[in-house]
Design a protein around this nucleic acid. Structure first.
Lengths: 112, 112
DNA sequence: GCCTCTCACTTTCATTATGCAAGTGACAAA
DNA sequence: TTTGTCACTTGCATAATGAAAGTGAGAGGC
């Protein structure tokens, strides 16, 4: 019955996907996960310097959408590591394609 | 000499690419271009109802980055059509991958 | 026990971006 | 002359972003 949890912009899969990762930070987190980063503090260390509140909100959104999974490695104090789910791995392929595209087509990056 | 026009977030190609299309609208315009849409008014008709000022700013950014090209089909009054450049076509492949990912992994879209 | 430190966030708040609506300029048609 | 269309631009209220400080749950040293 409940097909949609909230009013969507459209029924287009591209729009739906962008509602999950259509911003300047989310795919950078996926990139870091592909690099093997697992913990909150590690994501903060990346060169782009994501603000802590943004990181927290994006991790939450990725988890809610089933793209990543939060796994506790300590109960007391609560400490967690983040992993890509299967759909997250598939999103990883897109991130790799974005990497290739950016290396070839972004002016400020082409000139290595 | 002038390697970067402005301070970038990092030298990562993914970050550079997201500075061009990392938002909730830009890839929808590319999607529409893939569908054969060419004119301003056509982009406005899409189901997501992009605001006119956002559309104008995104078209400008895509043109500046060399992803699309604006071609006048009338001088007086000035009327234009937009086309994907070569790098835009390559970005189109990513949009198609996003479509496939979204259809498979976005809850509000899966249930068709 | 007490103090300091780390990790993983949360909160605050000024700044920026978004998005709705109305306005503008250049014509074409009636 | 009036109306209409296309492609934007402008104004403004609201929402998102981002810098920085704060919080809570312990761990480790003395």
């Amino acid at each position: 019955m409940k097909t949609k949890e909230k009013t969507c912009r459209s029924d287009c899969p591209v729009a739906g996907a962008l509602d999950i990762f259509g911003d300047r930070w989310t795919l950078l987190i996926v990139r870091d996960l592909l690099k093997g980063k697992r913990r909150y503090g590690e994501f903060l260390e990346s060169g782009e310097k994501i603000p802590t509140n943004i990181l927290a909100s994006r991790l939450k959104r990725l988890e809610t959408s089933g793209t990543i999974k939060k796994v506790l490695y300590s109960e007391h104090p609560p400490r967690a590591e983040y992993y890509l789910t299967e759909s997250g791995q598939e999103l990883g392929k897109i991130v790799k394609a974005v990497f290739v595209w950016g290396r070839k087509n972004v002016a400020s990056v082409k000139s290595t």
